[in-house]
Design a protein around this nucleic acid. Structure first.
Length: 830
RNA sequence: GCCCGGGUGGCGGAAUUGGCAGACGCACAGGACUUAAAAUCCUGUGAGGGAUUCCCUCGUGUGGGUUCGAGUCCCACCCUGGGCACCA
């Protein structure tokens, strides 16, 4: 008998067996309900870190659980293989990025296998393979044809360190999301995806996502930033044709507008500055602001600055003539790039107008008159209109509606909606990405690469050739003939943002080999929606909004037949060590390989799932890891004590009280673990299994004659319940206990309510809500009987002696609360 | 400023619907086994107070409230993490 828990050989044995028997290869099989478990695909950065281990162990616990429940599970994985870090690493090591990436994939794939995750490796994809990125290009072309991909010159976020453009979603606090360096503004011609076209759908369909955390839905809602209002055209004075359009959500305040303010980039400003009789002061100001860094300019505490243009506009409601200014705090990128300033009712306008001595005109009064006016603040609430001609006396909401109708009728106002969301800039000035399949022809202009010529293969290069414009320097890549007119033309040399790759990869898993389309419709139809998608919350906006956008585009292209791809989203917390995220610079990185070597993959899996609720941050703790190891060893030893026993005894004979209690605990545990897995509470599921083992241990140690057959039955239950978390270990003990078939093909245990039911329950006796005593009774005892037993209790008598009983509350099977007159109340009654 | 989480022992964290606060694990203390150590096992472990087996009081960020009964519901506040933010 080998009773040493040799995790290394056990894990190798079962990994080999699982691979040989192809146990996790998913087939489209309609005889069972499908279940698609998806985790965010890893970036092949070098090696798996503990965060990956947590993410994928979580997903695997669900995949194994669902498989054992008899569902037809698909659990795929792939590699988000393109990207800047690989390119930089390759330059550093003087090897081609492809080699670096492929090597990393091999390393990380081996790590995945050592962890015992049940991936269907036949569906593995890598986004840097031409078979994959070909379809990025295909979709790009489709989007171009529909006007959803377009080329535009404009200000972009430029990261000096990465030497590339970043999307708005990739900039936070004015810094690059990858390296944290300052992002600067640059003027470049770039490809964009028209995600704003889908802003409303992206917002509205959030309601469908009931299985998503509210937090993520709110974040997306904020990011889209819809606001509904009106655009109002103010004609320029002395001009019948030219108008200044402004956007407002507070049309009811328009009688209080005392100036119009334009963004320095506003087209009208350009014409004024360009005109021969320009005002120098204005031109200088505009030039000044344009050179200011965007994050400085848009910071809330930046001083408001402006300049009067010398021009006036007419308020279409009252014909009033108001000055037109230019100011730094008005942004071209939002609304119409022009606002009406209502200093009495907008804090920013208030500050601006104070500074430049513009008039402040009150047009809204609080509904409750008594509110004291704050001298340094605008009144920004809704209220009752005043100084607003026929609208005076109306409530804000009512007035808005009437004024809107009037403006629409007269043709100077329109209902309008704006969004904070900007179009997605997808051009990257780097080598290691999907080539954008576009050709510039001097005669025909922009021409997409014909579909039959896709993929545009990324040329292989040595790292020495890498640099800012690698592709641009490869003349054999750049120089092509125009697909339309055959004259010499130039290929686009930017590549796509890698977030394009990850926006639809989960569709590809359904038909990874498909070579005539990005996806095979029936396969997608079979597997979708994704039943559960697990990943870090850091993608709440980036990836998870792009992915939804792509789904809607693919739907409109006729590729899929639904609006949303993911039914349930689960965002797991980060793994911390000593209170902060693990990072090389902090030197607090824990390597999964070292842990596997010391304790085995099962202990590691168990610990990352046990130490914290999956949705919260997990603080790494070596001692906690050891605790999980001890638990497995304890279980191992007990298995050896019962391995040869027969398990068919418990049902065929009368059990004594202790035996019934053990069986009961076991069925209660089945119930709890099943329920906890349904609701993603892996931590409490594992705790419950530990409790059952403790219970079994007590039974064994109780000194009396034990039914080892019954005990074995309980340990078999543990093997089943624990297998989603510690699969190799469980396979091994399952085999030791005499089972030939892999746990993968064994059904999840079901609990018998009859056996799980308590025989005797503790009923609590409270007096005035305080626990004073307790008694034991059978479940289902009548309320009357509970009351009688409670009143007969000795301690009850002590606390109720001489007091009048006002009420008795009986909660079936739980407690009796006797409410007596308080002493202080007695005093009062005298 | 607006919108969301979170605050429970020495630590990580439990507590299905308002019904025994502190499951499970760690740490710590004492004990058993051992020549010894490791490993393993047993006992104890929220705070305070009294008692030889037991009992009492307090206790889930703070202050109020609802309720027979509140970690859980309501109001106000404090701390903390995250998202958005000169967005018209």
């Amino acid at each position: 008998m080998n009773n040493h828990y040799d995790f290394t050989s056990i894990e190798q044995k079962w990994q080999q067996r699982w691979t040989e028997e192809r146990e996790f290869v998913a087939q489209e099989d309609s005889s069972a309900d499908k279940y698609y478990v998806l985790e965010m695909l890893p970036y092949p950065s070098g090696a798996l870190h503990i965060g990956h281990v947590r993410n994928y162990s979580l997903g695997d616990s669900i995949a194994r659980f669902r498989r054992m429940q008899g569902l037809n599970v698909m659990h795929p994985i792939g590699w988000d293989a393109f990207g800047l870090p690989a390119e930089n690493a390759a330059i550093q090591r003087d090897i081609p990025p492809e080699q670096w990436t492929v090597d990393n994939i091999m390393t990380m794939k081996a790590q995945c296998q050592r962890m015992g995750w049940t991936y269907d490796w036949t569906r593995e994809i890598s986004t840097c393979s031409p078979e994959y990125y070909r379809w990025n290009q295909w979709m790009f072309v489709q989007m171009y044809k529909r006007g959803l991909a377009y080329l535009q010159r404009g200000p972009v976020n430029w990261c000096e360190q990465c030497q590339t453009v970043l999307a708005n979603e990739q900039v936070s606090d004015g810094c690059c999301w990858r390296d944290g360096s300052q992002v600067v503004e640059k003027e470049l011609e770039q490809w964009y995806f028209r995600i704003t076209e889908y802003a409303d759908q992206l917002l509205e369909d959030l309601d469908q996502l009931e299985g998503w955390p509210d937090k993520v839905r709110r974040m997306q809602q904020n990011w889209i930033g819809k606001s509904v209002g009106w655009t109002v055209s103010f004609p320029l004075q002395n001009s019948n044709e030219i108008t200044v359009d402004i956007f407002t959500t507070r049309l009811d305040t328009i009688y209080g507008a005392t100036s119009l303010i334009l963004a320095p980039e506003h087209p009208l400003v350009e014409t004024w500055v360009a005109s021969p009789n320009k005002v120098n002061e204005v031109a200088e100001f505009v030039e000044d602001i344009r050179h200011q860094r965007r994050e400085v300019r848009t910071a809330e505490d930046t001083e408001k600055k402006g300049v009067f243009t010398g021009h006036y506009a007419i308020n279409p409601f009252n014909g009033e003539e108001i000055p037109i200014w230019i100011a730094n705090f008005v942004l071209m990128g939002y609304g119409t790039g022009a606002i009406m300033a209502v200093p009495a009712h907008d804090q920013r306008d208030f500050e601006f107008s104070k500074k430049y001595a513009l008039p402040i005109k009150v047009v809204i009064k609080p509904e409750v008159d008594s509110l004291p006016a704050e001298p340094n603040h605008a009144f920004t609430e809704h209220g009752i209109l005043t100084n607003s001609e026929t609208y005076s006396g109306l409530l804000s909401q009512v007035a808005q509606k009437k004024m809107g109708e009037f403006g629409c009728q007269k043709g100077f106002a329109n209902k309008s909606t704006t969004y904070r969301l900007r179009d997605w800039g997808v051009s990257r000035q780097r080598y290691w990405g999907t080539p954008i399949p576009m050709i510039y022809c001097p005669k025909c202009g922009v021409v997409p690469v014909p579909e039959e010529q896709l993929p545009v293969v990324l040329p292989k290069v040595e790292s020495a050739q890498l640099g800012q414009s690698t592709l641009a320097n490869l003349s054999e890549f750049v120089n092509v003939s125009c697909p339309k007119c055959q004259s010499p033309a130039r290929r686009e040399t930017d590549t796509m943002d890698t977030f394009v790759d990850s926006s639809w990869y989960f569709y590809r898993y359904a038909s990874p080999q498909c070579d005539y389309a990005p996806i095979q419709g029936d396969a997608v139809q079979h597997w979708f929606p994704v039943d559960v998608y697990i990943g870090g919350v850091e993608h709440a906006i980036l990836h998870l909004i792009y992915m939804r956008f792509f789904t809607k585009v693919m739907r409109d292209l006729g590729l899929v037949q639904f609006d949303e791809p993911v039914k349930c989203l689960f965002t797991q917390g980060m793994v911390l060590k000593d209170g902060s995220a693990m990072s090389k610079s902090r030197g607090n990185v824990v390597s999964p390989d070292e842990v596997i070597q010391k304790y085995g993959a099962d202990t590691l899996r168990l610990f990352v799932l046990f130490a914290a609720p999956p949705d919260r941050d997990l603080d790494w703790n070596d001692r906690g890891l050891e605790g999980c190891f001890r638990f497995l060893k304890r279980l191992w030893r007990m298995v050896y004590q019962v391995q040869g026993e027969n398990t068919d005894g418990s049902m065929s004979r009368e059990l004594n009280g202790k035996e019934r209690a053990l069986l009961r605990k076991s069925h209660q545990t089945i119930r709890k673990v099943s329920h906890d897995l349904e609701r993603m509470h892996q931590n409490t599921a594992i705790a419950a299994i530990m409790e059952l083992l403790n219970f079994a241990h007590e039974y064994l140690d109780s000194g009396e004659q034990c039914d080892l057959g019954l005990l074995k039955e309980v340990l078999e239950t543990i093997a089943l319940l624990l297998s989603p978390f510690a699969p190799h270990f469980c396979e091994e003990i399952w085999e030791i206990m005499g089972h030939a078939e892999s746990l993968t093909f064994t059904l999840w245990p079901t609990y018998e309510p009859e056996l799980a039911r308590e025989e005797d329950i503790d009923i609590v006796i409270q007096v005035n809500g305080k626990i004073r005593s307790r008694f034991s009774a059978s479940p289902g005892i009548s309320k009357d009987e509970m009351e009688i037993l409670a009143m007969e209790d000795e301690k009850t008598k002590v606390y109720t002696e001489g007091k009048s009983i006002r009420n008795i509350i009986v909660v079936p099977d739980k407690l009796v609360n006797i409410v007596v007159q308080q002493e202080s109340e007695d005093d009062q009654s005298h």
